[in-house]
Design a binder for these strands. Structure first.
Lengths: 153, 153
DNA sequence: TTATAATATGCATTATTCATGTATCTTTGT
DNA sequence: ACAAAGATACATGAATAATGCATATTATAA
C-alpha cells in the first residue's frame, strides 16, 4: 500500500517545473527562456533518465506539461500551478483501479460483500481530500525549493 | 496502490467466522461447537492453505481470533463482531508505512516538501472512515453469506 | 501411550509488478 | 548535415508479494 515511485517522480517533476516557471511558463533561470530537460531533472533528483523519460512523456500526454523535441527542446508547465489538482495527477499516474481485488482470485462472498463498497468509498475520500490541493500548494516554500534545486545537481 | 491479498484474506476469514459465530463464539453449524479450521477456509474460498495459515496466525497474534492447536483444534472470533474495527484490521495486516516514500531514493526536496504531509493526512482520512465500520457491518447480509459459505467448498 | 489432527514456524520457490537499462527512431534548431 | 532533445519499443533487474514444502509443536482421542 504505497504510491509508485513513478507517481512520486511525476510530482517531483511538477514541483521542479513550478519553481522554474516564469510568466511565460519557461524556465526563469536564464533570460533566453531555456526549457527544462530530462537531464536537468535527473541530475537534480539523482534519478534514472529512462524512468524520468517515461514520466515526462506521460505528463505530456496528460497535458500537464508541454514537451518540445529537438535541439533546445525540453518541457514546461502547460497550466498554472493552481490549476493542477493533486488528485488528478495522482489518479492518472498511479492508475485508478479499486484498492481491493474481488476477482483474481474470485471471492465467493462477492454477491453479499459489503467490504468492497466501504473500501471504495474510503478511496474516494482520500482523493476528495487531495482534490483540495494543487501544485501551487506544493510551492509554498518556493524560495527554499529553488535554492535546493539550484544547488543540487 | 492496492491492498495486499493477505489483508483481503484476513477480512474474508473474519467474515466467515462472523457468519458461523454462535453465542459462545463457536461454530454454530454443529451442536458440538466444532471450531473452524484452516482447511474449511481454504475449501470455501479456494485459497492456498499455507497462506491462510499465516493470516490465521497473524489474526491470532492480534487477538482478533483465538486459535486452538491439536486435534479438534481450530479458531473462532475472540471478540464480538461490532468490536472489530476495520481500520484496525487493515492497518495491522497491511502494515502502516507512509504511502509516499521520501527516502529510497532520498528526495532533495524533502526539507521544503509539502506533499508528504498532504498524503499522510489523506491516508488518515481513509482510515478514519474505515474506523466507522466494524465486522458487524460486513455481516449485514449474514443469511446470504451463510448460504454462500455452506454451499461453496 | 501412541496415533492423529490441528496450528506454528522457517525456509525455499515462484509470480507479479515495479524499476531500470539499452537501443533506436523522430523531431528540430543550428 | 549534425547534434541535441524527446518518443518508443523491448529487454533486463530488483523488490515484494504469493505460494509451496517440510517439520515442529500441541492437544485430543483411541
Amino acid at each position: 500500500m504505497q504510491l509508485k515511485k513513478y507517481t512520486d517522480y511525476g510530482l517531483r517533476i511538477l514541483m521542479y517545473l513550478g519553481t522554474k516557471e516564469g510568466v511565460d511558463g519557461r524556465s526563469s533561470d536564464d533570460a533566453k527562456g531555456k526549457l527544462t530537460t530530462i537531464k536537468a531533472i535527473c541530475e537534480t533528483f539523482d534519478l534514472s533518465s529512462n524512468h524520468v523519460n517515461k514520466v515526462v512523456h506521460h505528463l505530456g500526454r496528460l497535458q500537464l506539461i508541454e514537451t518540445r523535441r529537438g535541439k533546445n527542446g525540453g518541457f514546461f508547465l502547460a497550466k498554472a500551478p493552481n490549476e493542477i489538482r493533486l488528485d488528478y495527477v495522482i489518479r492518472q499516474l498511479e492508475g485508478d483501479e479499486p484498492w481491493i481485488e474481488c476477482h483474481n482470485p474470485y471471492c465467493v462472498a462477492l454477491p453479499a460483500c459489503e467490504l468492497k463498497g466501504i473500501v471504495a468509498r474510503g478511496k474516494e475520500l482520500f482523493y476528495d481530500y487531495l482534490h483540495e490541493f494543487t501544485l501551487a500548494d506544493l510551492l509554498k516554500k518556493r524560495g527554499q525549493l529553488q535554492q535546493i534545486f539550484s544547488t543540487a545537481s
